[in-house]
């Protein structure tokens, strides 16, 4: 799981162009949206693309992302349970 969290941090930084951040800057339990990293609705869509491309998880509705993208940790849990690749 720790390896997935680390991998996810790197992929999120890349997908969202968080140029000036390193994986260590992201707290796995901190909220991604709102106060946390200050992400918006487009970032949520980018995260959906990230899950589809890397882990074969396809969401039908952007709203489903709300519960999954609470934090890196929650995202990692969801991916480990639902990944198809």
């Amino acid at each position: 799981m720790d390896a997935l969290v680390q991998e996810l941090k790197e992929k999120v930084i890349q997908a969202l162009n968080l140029e000036d951040m390193t994986p260590d800057d992201i707290d796995a339990n901190a909220p991604l949206f709102g106060e946390g990293l200050g992400l918006d609705s487009i970032d949520a869509l980018e995260l959906i693309v990230l899950m589809e491309r890397n882990y074969g998880i396809k969401l039908k509705n952007a709203n489903e992302g709300k519960d999954i993208f609470k934090s890196i940790q929650v995202m990692a849990d969801y991916i480990s349970k639902n990944r198809t690749k």
Binding site: A15, I42, L45, E46, V49, E52, R53
Partner: peptide, 10 residues
Amino acid sequence: EDGLSPSNFM
């Protein structure tokens, strides 16, 4: 046509 990132389109 699958898994396209929205940022570039936007």
